[in-house]
Every structure is written in C-alpha cells, then in structure tokens.
Simulated scan of single mutants.
Amino acid sequence: MAPEPANGMLFTIGLVATWYSCNIGVLLLNKYLLSNYGFSYPMFLTMCHMTACSLLSYASVAWLKVVPLQAVRSRVQFLKIATLSLVFCFSVVGGNISLKFLPVSFNQAVGATTPFFTAVFAYLMTRKREGWITYLTLVPVVTGVIIASGGEPSFHLFGFIMCISATAARALKTVLQGILLSSEGEKLNSINLLLYMAPMAVIFLLPATIFMEGDVLAITVALAREDKKILWYLLFNSSMAYFVNLTNFLVTKHTSALTLQVLGNAKGAVAVVISILIFRNPVSLTGMLGYALTVFGVVLYSESKKRSK
C-alpha cells in the first residue's frame, strides 16, 4: 500500500531534519576537533572520513540494497572516476584545513560562492553560456564574500585561501562529473559514485598523510590513552561524513534537486547561527551583512537557473 500523504510528508520532514543534522553536525565536530580540541590533522581526519565512506557505501549497496550496484564498465571510466576522486579529495582536505583557521560562520559564507565557480568552470571547460541575468546574480554572491572578508574579526589569509580552493574544487568536481560521466552508460548515482571514489581517495590520502602528518597515528594512540573520547569523536565524525552523502541522495530522491538547493541555502544560514552560539566566535555586523548578501545572490542565481530551463 502507498503511504498516506501525511505519512509521506512526515517521512520527508524527518529525512530533511536528518540531512541537516548530519551536515551541520559533521561541520561543527570537524571544527571542534581541528581547532578547539587541538587535533590538528586535517588529512588524517579526511582519510578517516573516506575510510568510513568506503565501508558504509559498500554495506549500503551490497548488503542493504539501498541502490542497485552499478559496475565500472571500462578502464577509461575507472580513470574518469579516479580524476573525480582526486578533485573531491582536495575539496574535503581544503575545507578541513580551513576550519583550523576560520570560524564556521565565515567558512559557510565563502562556501556559498560555489555557484560562481561552477559558472566559471562550466564556461571555461564546456563553453556553456548562461543568460546575462544569471551572470548578474553572481555579482552579489562575490560582493557579499568580499564584504564579509573585510568585516571578519577572525580573518586568516591561509585559511581563506584554503576555503576558496576547497569551494572551487567542489564546483570543479560538479562540472567534471557532468563532462566525464555524461553518457548514459557511464552515469552513476551519487551512492555508487561514492562507493568507487572513497577507496581511491584513501589511496591518494595515505602517502600524503604519512609524508605530512607522519606521527598522527602515534599521537592518536597517545591521546586515546589519556582520553578515550577521541576515538568516539573520530568514529562518530567519520560515520556522519557518510550519512551526509546518503541523506543528500535520499532527500534529492524524495524531493527534487531544486528543493535540495533551496534547503542547502537555508542549511548554511542555520549552520552559521548554531556555530556562533556554540563556539562564541566574534562576528561583526558587516560580516553578517556580507554573508546575507551572498545568500541572497545564491537564491537569485537558483531562481534564474530555474527560469532559464
């Protein structure tokens, strides 16, 4: 029997609430571990995330049958997925590094510029042109971040560069995914794509972690002897990183990509408010106005893209 509309609505609301909780939860716990707790190893933390995504993706597809398994059909497709994995890996590492130096509120303000970088990469790589109104909506997106940067009391140049780089990498992955996996035979849903990308990311991250954070394992073991909570933090944080992707897929499936975009804009604002309440990081009126302008620009951009289709 099909679920009653009320039950269906409750299910969707619960799904969105879970997606929000996982998104904001992993962001805040990343910030706590990397900055407040003093676990300053963003590459190792990202590797933990990718390891959890590898194991839980396999469990979801092979055992729980959340989605049917989609096989990699050729060596060329495998190399395309590996390229996406490398870019994805850089975006997550960059985002985690930025959280060492920047408050979550400013991190989210910079992250909201993703549509700007997506439009730039789409034009450079595919020569895809948008309408002039769509490009005009990107002006407040960028202007807002410039204003927020000038008014950010905790501004850190290296953290800002890493945050911008991570945002650009996320946009690049989106555009590359559309180019590399464009044919019907190569398209993968997000759960299957994560199933293949996450283990590749672990392989990319392992030598980098050993080279740049070589003593992290010994330090983690030493920390665990003093405070066993660090192991629970890492386990919970890594599991949430997977559930961000799973709930993202499920929300898109049960609503629409456009709804996801709108909810994503609101999620950023919610994350900003919660992070300020928890971490008590100083904020300025100028910074908040800049962030508000960026979000307003993103909403205009989404509306413009919807109307152009």
Score class of each variant (00 low, 15 high):
Val139Cys: 08
Leu188Lys: 14
Thr174Trp: 02
Leu234His: 05
Asn189Ile: 04
Asn192Ala: 07
Arg73Ser: 08
Arg170Ser: 11
Val61Glu: 10
Tyr291Arg: 04
Leu33Val: 10
Gln77His: 12
Leu138Thr: 04
Thr220Gln: 06
Leu300Asp: 00
Trp19Thr: 03
Gly264Ser: 11
Leu180Lys: 02
Cys53Asp: 10
Leu84Met: 12
Thr220Ser: 11
Gly214Ser: 06
Thr114Tyr: 00
Trp132Tyr: 09
Phe78Ser: 11
Lys65Met: 03
Gly111His: 05
Val251Glu: 03
Cys53Thr: 13
Val66Gly: 00
Trp63Tyr: 15
Thr134Ala: 04
Leu29Gly: 02
Ile278Thr: 06
Phe90Leu: 10
Phe88Ser: 13
Leu188His: 13
Ile278Tyr: 02
Ala224Leu: 07
Ser304Thr: 08
Leu56Glu: 04
Cys53His: 14
Phe44Tyr: 14
Val175Arg: 06
Pro103Gln: 08
Leu55Phe: 15
Thr247Cys: 12
Leu277Thr: 01
Ala266Ser: 12
Val104Tyr: 12
Ala257Arg: 13
Leu194His: 10
Val262Tyr: 09
Leu205Met: 11
Phe11Val: 09
Asn23Gln: 14
Trp19Gly: 13
Ser190Pro: 08
Val26Trp: 01
Thr143Asp: 05
Gly185Asp: 12
Thr252Glu: 08
Thr83Pro: 01
Val139Trp: 01
Val67Arg: 14
Gly144Ser: 07
Lys309His: 12
Met288Trp: 11
Asn107Tyr: 15
Ala169Pro: 00
Ala148Cys: 09
Leu136His: 04
Glu184Arg: 02
Ile179Gly: 00
Leu29Pro: 02
Ala224Lys: 02
Glu184Ile: 02
Ala71Gln: 15
Ala6Val: 13
Arg75Thr: 08
Cys53Lys: 14
Leu79Ser: 15
Leu69Lys: 13
Ala292Gln: 08
Thr294Gln: 03
Leu64Tyr: 15
Asn36Glu: 05
Glu226Asn: 09
Ile230Trp: 08
Pro103Tyr: 00
Leu27Tyr: 01
Ala257Pro: 01
Tyr242Ala: 00
Met197Asn: 06
